[in-house]
Every structure is written in structure tokens, then in C-alpha cells.
Design a protein around this nucleic acid. Structure first.
Lengths: 353, 353
DNA sequence: TTGTAGGCGTTATCAA
DNA sequence: TTGATAACGCCTACAA
């Protein structure tokens, strides 16, 4: 793979219209250095007279500093590349706001990209971030449980770190960097325990893609809950979805058809839980009286559907905020995983049976 | 206002670890020029032998091109700055995906920022975009109906365009550039006409902030509908909200208290319509039997609440996509407004009275 | 306090 | 086809 970033020589657009720093300096009748010192907010002292002249010239000439030239000298820039593996619908304005708020406070810019679930695209974007000499990179979402994939990421990120970059993740990747991870095990365990404590024993599980680390953790949590309750684990009650609503419907149909005695369903995303609602609606099944449902994510929609969806909070904004703060602080970034709790939110979609 | 972008001289981070183009060239035993030609995907022909050597050296050295150096020469970069005035909740992953999809296809990157409703911040971000020498800027959302504001934006964008930048908006700003605007007049008119045709005459309106252009358009549309039906316009039935859910509740309370004979409410955002749902719920008012509701936006949530919300589509993704396509094409950008329809989606929240 | 000059990593021009 | 070399716009020792 050539390191060429499919760069196409752009039509050089008339180039600087002579309003660079040099123009400002000339108009103000000062040297380049003086102009720079005034305009770049250097600590170097400049006499009030010259300072005014430079400022005025800059204003008149509508001078806008060239960040590329600056970052070429500095070797880095105050931009954090945020890589979202797959921008699903539970990624909302709230998350962006969380990221943006922290970044802005520190005077940083965000470069947000979406790999749309493609590993190839992910690597390509990571490389772009490096080429852009961003100062930090944040990986959003849960990573793939695949050693080859992990190795490629590690290689790329190592190169980045070696050149002074900072990395953190918002979601588990099991990479040698600072990771803020949701407590998926506890979250799923709480969901299943809640269902069990309401008398449900035949619980269908609609899982997210099995390739994702978070999915395996949630399965672990579910198994743990069953084990604690002494209820045998039944692999046949697990159907895999893709996080999206439609897949929730399909999985639900399958589950209900093959196991008519299922009384409750745990879907690993609110979207898929809504897919279950759709099926229940179509079949004339009442939720929660005839079918109990628990979701995951606590999307804004969860409280507004009828019945309001009992679900587990996925602390997306919290993870994002923490990862951003870690990247922008000066504290050294240790390779560690910081667990953020996933709380169960009880609403109206589960009935006692 | 100094053009200084509050730039703080960062700690120069050990600078290039000697793995720049020069290192690659040296290792491959070729000149800088040759290495550049191979790595930058130039059309200039290079013999197979040298090409291989360069590629290999680049691989071994983990060479990543410096985009800053490139853009310093080119004077521009394939990045489009996307400015969201206020990232409200109806700005979703779908919009980002729409933007990203088009950009990625053309090999461009997106720099997404959120001004959080602050004019000062908006101008600051615009200036940052210019400093970054982005190739295009997209303004998302409806602009403020304020000449001073418009003048400041125009000044900033003119400077940008003069230096070769491309500008488009996704939402009405009434600026001298290519604008993709939603047909707010028709949208609001359709909403009110639908209510009127269902026998409602006392219709409360919860408007978005009056400072926003789109709000005025929607008021115009509403007035037009009343006029056509020969129903007198009643200013007292209009209460201003801020787009958010809570403001919808407050406005609804006010409306219902002051005008107990109101039979329907048109809220200019789905979020505020949900605020109306909240009030109805609290007051024990049945929707739509005792109170009809129409929203605006067609948020994903609209179809899932009970009763499903009748609303007007705000074609956010469509606007975004079109604006992005316009920016990335080579076609000259005329100052024009392209109207995108706002369709009424009839669901279950309106009853005949 | 001010100015001069060198260099950041690339690409483009022009000879060879 | 290849290789010197001059920009690109800016910051910062270092000298004045």
C-alpha cells in the first residue's frame, strides 16, 4: 500500500493575493519579525506605536494568518481528529456538543470523520489525520475483536504517538493507550438480572454484531446474570443484529417463531428494541403484558415511545468528553482502561410474569 | 478586533523525527524531486526501478506526507469547513453521513464546528476556517434576520471567496452566495391549511426564535393559510419558543391558560411539539381528541411517539448534501437560492373537530 | 526594542 | 527521466 493519500495536484488558486504577513509588515513599515510578533500573540514585547501600526495594517489588508505555514514550523496543530467507526443513529448532536465544548475551551478544532464501518476507510482516515499533523486522535465506538485489525491500528497509532501525538478512545478497543470504556458487562448483567427478578426465564437476546468487543462483553454480562440466578444459558435464544432497527425486527421474528415461549427480549441497542416494538405491534402483542423488552443506549427516543423503554445507559457523551479532556491535558497518557458505569434505567417496558 | 486567532505558541514537539521526504529520498538514493513525484501521485513519469525504491523506503520509514507543507504550496486544501450555528437535537448522524458521503467521494475532509448560537463564536470559527485555508465553507441552519450580522458574515465570506474559496449554505441566510433553502413558507402553510381543513380555527402557534429568518417565513406561510381560508390572524395566539422541548411546554401552558378555546397547536419544531405532548399528558388532555398537534422537522422520533406526530419535513440532509455537492463541483457558484420542498407528513396527532 | 536570516517539508521550474 | 534549486508563509534564534 503506497503511502500516497490519493493526492491530486489541485489547481493552484491564484496563490496568496499579496496580503500575507509580508504585505502587512511593509504597509506598517516594520520588519517581518515585528509584524509576526504582534499578530501571533508572541510574548516578545513590541512598542505600542509599532503594534498599533501593524494591527491597523492587518485590519485594512484583511490579513488572515496561514495556519499551514504555522503548523509547518510548529510541527503540530491544535486539531483533534475524531474517528467514528460507524456513525449510527445513537450518535447525536449531544455527543458532538460534548466534544466541541471541551475542544473549544482549549482553543482546539475538531476534525470529525466517519469510517462507515469500513476498516480500510478507517485506516485511510487515520493516515489522513497523521498527514494533517493533528495533535490528537480520538477513536469513538467499540473496536473490533480481531488481532489483525488491532495490529494495524496499533502500528498506525504508534507512529502517531512517536511523533508527539496523543491518543485516547471513547469505547473499548483493547489498544495500548488511554481508553475510556463503558462497563458493558455490568450493563448487560443488570438488564438480564432485572428481567430475571421479574420472573422471566426464557429471555431472547438480540445482540449487536459479534465482531465488536462490546458485544462479547455484554454476552458475558448476560451469562453471568443467568449463572448467578442458576438459570441455564441457552445459546439458541441469541440472535445477532446489526444495531439497526430493521435487524431488530428480523431477529425478533426469528426468536418468536422459533421460541414461542419467550416472554422477554433484551436488545443490545434501543434501535433494535424499537424493531421489536414494531414486530409486537404488527403481531398485536402487547408490551409489556405479553412481551417485555429491555434496550441498550438510552437514546433520547427511549422515554418517548409507548410504553417507555427500559434500557441501559450507554454513556457516549461522557466517554467522548473524558477522552477529549485526556487528550487536551498535559498529563502523560498511560495505557489504561477507565471504566464508566452503564446504569439501568427502569421505565415501563417490562412486566412481572 | 485583532486578527490574531488567540494563537498560543505551542511547545515545539521535537520536530520531524527525520522521516520526512528527504529521509526517504536519501534512503532510496534518489533526489527529493523524484521521491516527491512518486509519493505525491504526480503524473510525471518515473522509471519503475526508482519508483520501487522510493515506495520501499517510504514503507520502511513509515513516511507520512506533511499536509501543511503541501497546502502551503498549493495555497488551499481539500477540507470543507462546516459551520453549524446551533447544533440542536434534530441535527443527527444522518446529516453528518450525508455530508461525509459526498465529501469522501471527492477525497475531501470535513471540519465540523458548532457555534452554539453565539455570533461571536461563529465569526471566530469562520476566521479559523480561513486561516486553515479550507477550500470550501458550508453554513448550516437558518441565519439571523439582522443586517449587521449579515454584513459581518458577508465581509468575512467575501474575503474567503476572493482568495479562491467556495461557499454555500444549507438553510436560508440571504447572503450573496449559493443557498439551498427549505420552503418554509409552503411548509408552514401546509401545516396550518391541514389544521384548518380539519375544522380547527383557534390554532396556537409555538414559534422558533423570531430572530431567525426561517421563523419569519413560517409565520408568513401560516398567515397566508389563514388568509386563504378567510380566518382572521390572531397575534395573541403566537408564543415564541427556543426550539427546545422545555420551551414547547412553557409556551403550551401559556397558550392553554390564556386561550382555553384553542383546539390545535402548531409547533415549529418536533422537540417543542413533544413539549406540548408533555403538557397534554400532565393535564390529562388526550391528543388528538382534545388537542391536535402539528410539528416541524420530521425528527426520527416523530413516528414513534403516541400518537405519531403529524409534522413537516425539514429536509436537512438534502440541503446539506446539495450544498456539499455544489461546493465540490467545479461549476461556478452563482448567488442564488434553490428552494427545497417541505412536505407535510400526516400521522395521527390531528383530529377533525 | 527591532531587524536579519535561516529553516520547516513539499512541490514546481528549469536544466541536464 | 532525473536532479538542483527556488519558492510557499511564517516563526525564532541571533545580531544590532
Amino acid at each position: 500500500m503506497p503511502p500516497n493519500l490519493s493526492y491530486v495536484p489541485a489547481k493552484r488558486p491564484t496563490q496568496a493575493n499579496g496580503s500575507g504577513l509580508a504585505a502587512v509588515a511593509e504597509r506598517a513599515g516594520v520588519s517581518l519579525a515585528t509584524a509576526s510578533r504582534v499578530l501571533a500573540g508572541s510574548t516578545h514585547r513590541v512598542s505600542g506605536d509599532l503594534r498599533d501600526r501593524v494591527l491597523h495594517a492587518a485590519e485594512v489588508l484583511d490579513y488572515v494568518p496561514n495556519a499551514s505555514a504555522r503548523s509547518l514550523i510548529m510541527g503540530t496543530r491544535k486539531i483533534v481528529g475524531v474517528l467514528q467507526h460507524d456513525m449510527l443513529d445513537f450518535f447525536t448532536a449531544t455527543n458532538i456538543r460534548a466534544l466541541e465544548e471541551v475542544a473549544d475551551r482549549a482553543g482546539w478544532l475538531i476534525m470529525l470523520v466517519n469510517a462507515s464501518g469500513s476498516v480500510e476507510k478507517e485506516l485511510r482516515y487515520l493516515r489522513m489525520f497523521r498527514a494533517e499533523r493533528v495533535g490528537a486522535i480520538i477513536l469513538m465506538g467499540s473496536g473490533l475483536d480481531d488481532d489483525g485489525y488491532r495490529a494495524m491500528l496499533t502500528r498506525e497509532l504508534n507512529g502517531f504517538v512517536k511523533s508527539g501525538g496523543r491518543v485516547a478512545t471513547a469505547g473499548r478497543h483493547d489498544l495500548p493507550c488511554t481508553e475510556f470504556v463503558p462497563d458493558n458487562v455490568a450493563g448487560a448483567q443488570a438488564a438480564i438480572e432485572y428481567l430475571l427478578s421479574n420472573g422471566h426465564h426464557r429471555i431472547g437476546i438480540i445482540s449487536s454484531p459479534s465482531a465488536i468487543i462490546g458485544t462479547r462483553e455484554r454476552i458475558t454480562g448476560a451469562k453471568r446474570a443467568f449463572a448467578h440466578a442458576g438459570v441455564p444459558w441457552n445459546e439458541g435464544l441469541v440472535v445477532e443484529g446489526d444495531h439497526r432497527r430493521a435487524s431488530g425486527s428480523i431477529a425478533c421474528e426469528q426468536l418468536l417463531t422459533r421460541n414461542p415461549d419467550v416472554t422477554a427480549i433484551f436488545a443490545m441497542s434501543d434501535e433494535m428494541a424499537l424493531g421489536v416494538y414494531d414486530v409486537a405491534h404488527k403481531r398485536g402483542l402487547s408490551i409489556p403484558d405479553e412481551l417485555s423488552v429491555v434496550g441498550y443506549d438510552d437514546t433520547t427516543i427511549a422515554r418517548d415511545v409507548t410504553p417507555a423503554l427500559t434500557t441501559v445507559i450507554y454513556p457516549n457523551s461522557e466517554l467522548a468528553r473524558r477522552a477529549m479532556e485526556a487528550c487536551l491535558s498535559d498529563a502523560p497518557l498511560e495505557a489504561a482502561q477507565l471504566l464508566i458505569p452503564c446504569e439501568l434505567i427502569v421505565r415501563k417496558s417490562v412486566a412481572r410474569v
